[in-house]
Each structure stands twice: as C-alpha cells, then as structure tokens.
C-alpha cells in the first residue's frame, strides 16, 4: 500500500514535465497540420477522375487504417536508415504520426464532402469554376465546417497516439513518466501525473467538440 504521494519528486521533475507537455502538444499540432494537408491531397486524389491514382490512394488509406500505429512507428524507425535517410527520433515520430493521421483525416473529409449536394458542384462547374476554385470556394469551406467535430475527435486520438513515440525515446509526457519510474522508482507519481495531464488535454478537446456541436456555428454555412 502507498503511504504517501511524493510531491517533492514531482517538483524536482516539474521542468521535465513541462517540457514533455509542450513536446506532446507540439508534436500533435505539427502532425495535425501536416496530416491535414496530406488528408486534403489524398481526399482530392481519391475522389479525382484518374482511376489508377484513386486506387493507389485508396490502398494507402486502407493500409494505414488497418495496421497499428506502433507497427508503423517501428517500421519507419527501423527502415529509414536502410535508405540512407538520417532522421532523428522526433522527425521519425512526426513523419509516422502525420502519415497515419493523414489517412484518417482524408476519410473524415471525404465523408464531409459527401454531405454536399452534387447540384452545388455541378452549378460551380457550369459557372466555369476550375477544380481548384471549386475546392477553394465551394467544397472545402462547407466540408471543413461539417467535419469540425470528427476532426476534433481525430486530434484527441492524435494526442493519445503521440504517446507511442516514447517507445522510440522521444521525450514527451509518457516518456517523462517512464523516466520517473526508472530514475526514482516512483511509478505511481510518474504515471498518475502523466495520465492527469493527458486527461486535461482530453477534457479541453472534448468540451471544445461538444461546444462546436452545440453552437452549430458551422451549420449556418451549409
């Protein structure tokens, strides 16, 4: 049984926790941005007219969604060196997370685009809009609005998924918990604090998602 909770150790490691928290947030945000860009590109290619490219993209998305992220992280971590690409752990982690979340985000966007009536796109076409203009002015503004709640859900899982980078020794929240376990033999203090910080991020994003659904601010554009 635990007689006490060692707060002093937490004060000793508070700098490390701050660093871990910032790294977790930073990695998640960068991966979300890169994954978002990748998602838009994949989605456009998948729905495009070229059937061969569409097949390849569909296969990529399915492959990413049907394999565990931990296997993908190991895959990039152990294989990039063979091709002479010298990435550090951070870069490998961000690469794996972006490629992974890109596949999910493209599916979310596709669902959002499917909710736009085909008539609008046809109207834009007959008004002489190019593909880029259709995307920029007609499709994406509406699709992004309809996909805000699922995208927030995706960012929740992205924050959680970033914990797997601790396995390739990226210093983020979970890694700090492990450091506390290894250096001070304080698993309770280490992992309770880690879990509490994750829960903090989770509750913030969850309430943001609930708020966005309740306000329906994005529905007005539809």
């Amino acid at each position: 049984m635990i007689e006490y909770f060692n707060y002093r150790a937490l004060f000793d490691y508070s700098d490390l926790y701050l660093k871990g928290l910032l790294n977790t947030l930073g990695i998640s945000i960068i991966a979300l941005i890169l994954g978002g860009i990748l998602g838009v590109v994949l989605c456009v290619l998948k729905l495009g007219k070229n059937k061969a490219i569409s097949r390849i993209v569909t296969f990529y998305i399915d492959a990413m969604r049907s394999t565990p992220l931990i296997v993908q992280v190991y895959f990039f971590y152990f294989s990039l060196g063979n091709f002479g690409i010298d990435f550090n752990e951070f870069e490998v982690g961000i690469l794996a997370l972006s490629l992974h979340s890109g596949a999910y985000i493209s599916e979310i966007l596709r669902a959002g685009i499917s909710s736009i009536p085909q008539g609008q796109i046809e109207a834009a076409m007959s008004s002489g809009f190019s593909l880029f203009q259709r995307l920029r002015y007609i499709i994406l503004p509406q699709a992004i609005g309809a996909t805000v709640p699922p995208l927030l859900g995706q960012s929740i899982s992205l924050v959680k998924d970033s914990s797997l980078l601790s396995l390739i020794s990226v210093l983020e929240l979970t890694r700090v918990g492990q450091v506390l376990t290894h250096e001070r033999f304080l698993p309770v203090e280490g992992f309770v604090t880690t879990a509490a910080l994750y829960l903090l991020i989770y509750y913030f994003l969850k309430h943001l998602s609930l708020w966005s659904q309740k306000r329906l601010i994005f529905k007005e554009t539809l």
């Binding site: 929740i156 959680k160 998924d161 970033s162 914990s163 797997l164 601790s166 396995l167 979970t174 918990g177 492990q178 376990t181 698993p187 309770v188 992992f191 309770v192 880690t194 879990a195 994750y198 829960l199 989770y202 509750y203 969850k206």
Partner: peptide, 15 residues
C-alpha cells in the same frame, strides 16, 4: 478514452 492505452497498460503493470 482520455488517456493513451500505453499509459493505461503501464498503470496496470507498474502501479
């Protein structure tokens, strides 16, 4: 749902 499964498994195994 709010914590990574990795942290949960460390909880169960180490704590």
């Amino acid at each position: 749902r709010g914590t990574p499964f990795l942290v949960q498994i460390f909880f169960i195994y180490f704590i």
